[in-house]
Nucleic acid binder design. Sequence first.
RNA 1: GGCGGCGUAGCCAAGUGGCUAAGGCAGAGGACUGCAAAUCCUCGAUCACCGGUUCGAAUCCGGUCGCCGCCUCCA
Length: 468
Amino acid sequence: MLRIYDTLEGRKKEFVPVREGKVGMYFCGMTVQSEPHVGHMRVAVVSDLFKRYLRYKGYDVTLVINFTDIDDKIIEKAGEEGVDYLEIAQRNIDKFMEFLHFLGAEEADHYPRATEFVGEIIKLVERLVERGYAYESGGDVYFEVKKWKNYGKLSKRNLEDLLAGASQRVALDDKKRNPEDFAVWKAAKEGEPAWESPWGMGRPGWHIECSAMSTKYLGEHFDIHGGGTELIFPHHENEMAQSEAATGKPYVNHWVHHGLVNLVGEKMSKSTGHFKTMEEIAAKFPPDVVRFYLLSTHYRTQIEFSDERLEEAASSIERFENLFRTLDRVVGPEGQGDEGAEPSAAMEEERAKFIEAMDDDLNTAQAMGHLFEAVRVLNQEIESGASAEVLRADRRTLRGLLDILGLLKDLETAGEDAPEEVEKLVAARTDARAARDWARADELRAEIEAAGYTVEDTPDGPVVRKAR
RNA sequence: GGCGGCGUAGCCAAGUGGCUAAGGCAGAGGACUGCAAAUCCUCGAUCACCGGUUCGAAUCCGGUCGCCGCCUCCA
């Protein structure tokens, strides 16, 4: 039984799809006023993880990741740079997509942008006004928070707390009836991007686009809505209020919030400039290392991103690389002839535990522990001379589990050919060893290593590969 | 100030009432090896602190200390 945590209820709940056999998921991608950073890598990986696992569980999954390409910040930025706001949006969306691919995440099914849904947004705002939850004021339209009795349920705060906390910060806007009300539609100022609406020229407020776009693709009530924890308030709280007020139905079954990524103890933030871009990370570490690191902690836990952590992940991955390389040597490459045989009992046990861990709110940290155990199982089998049939079956099983996590697809096991001069050194070393001239052999190995390669002696002869 | 979360071995990180507290990185010893590498075997935790509930607590309750997040644009 698959259980997934829900922020709204504050507990893990059994996953029961709204529509049998199907899963609708919506993840808040990014507001595209600036470059994607490490935090966005986590959304990319977490949304992909959910997609892959739910599909593994047999569901037909639809994943929507949105881009909010119109808001105060991007207009501001466009002004600063003197370019069209859509140009900035496109540039950052392109980067996001580039690194999504870098991380080995599958494409989502839809990537809606707020500006493409203004018509839907206007309809939704009209509906809110008709139902008495929103009011027009000077060209703006506000959601009247106190009309919605469930307001605060998601972020677990009440109106009084909110007002107490915000009283010093939120300037009283005389267009609003109440300080806690939020804009669903904003009148455009001179020169700002604007759309025609029943309330004059204007543009969508911040939260409304997600309500409109999620409903468009997934219906008024869908399964999973995700994003970072910092979006719980106000973004998701407001989004939920709008959607439920408009439809009178529950909006989503599982609110999934992943922990934030910190850099040396401090949260990354666009406003303080304290963040690492995806580009900086990608330049330094291979995709699998980043993905492995991101998955080695449970998705709801906040994590710290640092070079040391990534180096550790890289070391961990070597265990898999070494195993697959050895298996290639011992039983040949993956693929042909791997079907048929049943995995060993030890491997089957690890597989079952892996799935059990994943069924418990996608606990990748625990699941990966079993992956390492599976590696040990295979290594033990190799040591004890298990049959090629069993080794192949077990390798295939392990590969299947890695695929669920989208990990290590392109493991380098063959160890591409070393340059000719290195090959010559290796050959010379083999001769020296045959002649039991150990001093010469060691000397040659030193030369090979100086050239950036390592040589390992195996029962099947020396294996050369690039040193890490 | 209000709300939420966290504190598990040198580091990272699972486990939330009961078998010997997963796993990884780093480290030590052993096996294998001409030497290595890889691999296998072995080795490390009074679960922040104090008190309580319980036959039994890392796990539940109360308190203390420390860290983080949200309350304001942000994955």
